[in-house]
Nucleic acid binder design. Structure first.
Lengths: 242, 242
DNA sequence: CAACCCATGTAAACAGTTACATGATTTA
DNA sequence: TAAATCATGTAACTGTTTACATGGGTTG
């Protein structure tokens, strides 16, 4: 089980907890909201759904021809089960290196911050920042070391990448500050203030073996382009919801 | 042959043309300069070198114990051959979608712009821009469509990703303008590390996602595009240029 | 009437990492 | 002397995409 598929499971469970959906729609949603899954193919999605169903973390209900909607190919609506919910919550409370070492993983976890407790959120954010700082340092060194021997194009690309990472670090720091409440600059608008958790229940208990805490950093997985960059302005895009 | 391995071959040939190297060093170089190959493992590199050797695009010379340097495990120094050079040049003159659809591919190609003719450079840059604009549009749509239903964290990540792509487009446009203007070798002025000149120095801060997490399947079909307009405003990133 | 979105799924092909095997040299 | 870096390579495993199979509905 790679980091990737575990994240896919997390994302699926996270989505199904909000609303039951069928495969096609689910893929669209994941592709749209998460850059991480930009290329998510049915070849990955359906097997994953199958696995989850087999493990009884979700159910696959094929509604017998809804009235008026007949004709269409039967959609299979997936719903999260109690066990699935427990599993999800257990996973969300777990914050190992796997949650921030991989770009895609971080994105998924961040997306699910709405139902992650504050402590775990901070742990993930700080782990991520450390990761990015490390990256930044490496880039700076190799850049400074070789810049004189580099041709302009290579140099431009390198500086470019470096700046991007710098911005990512800056972004993370802003988010962390906001989370800590030390600075109220960033207003996330509708969400519960930092420190409040959506999951009122036992959000922290490692009951089930969701994510092995000892999960290896794995060096660095395949990674994907849409990690996270940085928001440059502090201006909140406040979107109030009805 | 995946796009990935082809790009790896290109990168190897490009590097070997500049200087003969041995495997270990080669990997370090590629990992350092190209974010695309951050995770390049020997499991990929050595087979690739093997293949290139078999095709006689490079040679593998194992120097029989250089004087005074004995003791060390024999380094195998790879050199590009005439055929390899021809192959490289042929590849560099080719500018298909493969050169810009994939993030990693674009990075590699950009790095080799120093020995790519101006026409091809522009073709690649413009193809890349189109790709990024497409991406940007998709993000805007899905963002505007769902922003009301998104929780703050998801929204923050989404806006974030959008801005990142916007910056990438801006960066590309700057580079394109420069290419058109100088009509020759790129002159990016002084090459000072971005870290040192935080205050928008000689380089207009470029932003993008190209470098760090590379790699995405090239054939990625355009995701989905449906829905209303978006709430994103594009601040005109200051566009000064040499 | 062709093309394309909806909708679910499977099988084969493939690319790539991880882990292993081996061993010398420098550094803490 | 333990650990890290240098240095090359292989094999197995794992995950993922690609292509296929199927078929109704909608739009140009």
């Amino acid at each position: 089980m790679g980091t990737r598929s575990q994240m896919l499971e997390l994302a699926i469970l996270g989505r199904l907890r909000e609303t039951p959906t069928h495969g096609y729609e689910l893929r669209k949603h994941l592709n749209a909201t998460l850059g991480a899954f930009r290329t998510l193919s049915y070849g990955s999605l359906y097997p994953a759904l199958r696995t989850l169903t087999d493990r009884e973390l979700i159910t696959a209900d094929e509604p017998a021809a809804a009235p008026g909607l007949a004709g269409k190919r039967a959609r299979i609506v997936y719903r999260i089960t109690g066990a699935g919910l427990a599993h999800l919550e257990g996973s969300l409370a777990t914050a190992g290196p796997a949650a921030w070492d991989d770009d895609a993983s971080f994105d998924v976890r961040f997306t699910l911050f709405g139902s992650t407790d504050a402590t775990t959120r901070l742990r993930i954010l700080e782990g991520r920042r450390a990761r990015m700082v490390e990256r930044m340092e490496n880039l700076r060194q190799s850049f400074g070391r070789t810049s004189r021997r580099m041709d302009s194009y290579t140099a431009e690309l390198a500086r470019h990448g470096l700046e991007q990472v710098e911005r990512e670090v800056a972004w993370l720091e802003r988010v962390i500050d906001t989370e800590r409440g030390t600075r109220g600059a960033l207003d996330y608008g509708d969400i519960s203030p930092p420190g409040t958790t959506r999951t009122s229940g036992p959000s922290i208990h490692p009951g089930d073996a969701a994510l092995p805490p000892g999960n290896r950093p794995a060096g660095a997985p395949s990674a994907d382009a849409t990690g996270a960059a940085a928001t440059s302005r502090n201006e909140p895009l406040n979107k109030e919801q009805a």
